[in-house]
């Protein structure tokens, strides 16, 4: 009887404890999962942005970028319903930067151009005719406007034949 009881208990405990978190899940489902291997500052190739002589891009450390740029106009902290997020946007004249804390370090995770007072290093600007935009990026443009270089993705939105939006974000799944 004792042996049966022990076997039963062991089977039940194995059932419960032997089953770990499924692949791709963190042990704590309430933690934000970020793959630190995908985060490498400075590896955005040609897809960087430059303002006031400061060159920066996806996954660069926020502190270094902010200390080199002139003072931002305002800031916005994105709140989620439940989690204290660290998504902070900084607004500058003509563009904005969004940052997230990844693996304990605040990094740039999005750069967006807001109006035609600023251009990308390749000369892209809001309102630019699409054909001019294509010729500005001959090496990167491959029939669509999601351009990848290293860890960066440059998304250009075209509306009515002209550039409507320009955003840099992380290139998901790219190495």
């Amino acid at each position: 009887m004792k042996r049966t009881a022990i076997l039963l208990l062991a089977a039940l405990m194995l059932l419960a404890i032997g089953c770990g978190a499924p692949n791709g899940q963190t042990d704590d489902p309430n933690a934000v999962f970020v793959d630190p291997n995908a985060v490498r500052g400075g590896e955005y190739g040609e897809l960087y942005f430059e303002a006031n002589g400061v060159r920066f891009g996806i996954y660069d450390e926020t502190e270094a970028v902010l200390s080199a740029l002139p003072a931002y106009r305002s800031t916005f902290t994105g709140q989620s319903c439940a989690f204290e997020t660290e998504d902070v946007s900084y607004f500058f004249s003509g563009f904005e930067i969004t940052t997230n804390v990844i693996d304990g370090v605040s990094r740039v995770t999005a750069i967006r151009l807001d109006d035609d007072t600023v251009k990308t290093p390749q000369g892209l600007y809001i309102g630019m005719p699409e054909e001019d935009a294509i010729s500005a990026l001959p090496a990167l443009y491959e029939a669509d406007w999601n351009l990848v270089d290293g860890t960066a993705l440059l998304s250009v939105t075209i509306v009515d034949g002209a550039v409507y939006g320009i955003t840099y974000t992380p290139a998901v799944g790219e190495d």
Binding site: M1, T4, A5, L8, L9, L12, M13, A16
Partner: peptide, 13 residues
């Protein structure tokens, strides 16, 4: 005994 073991296991789990 088996029944008791099951109850104990269920309670513990």
């Amino acid at each position: 005994g088996i029944l008791l073991s099951c109850i104990v296991c269920f309670g513990a789990l």
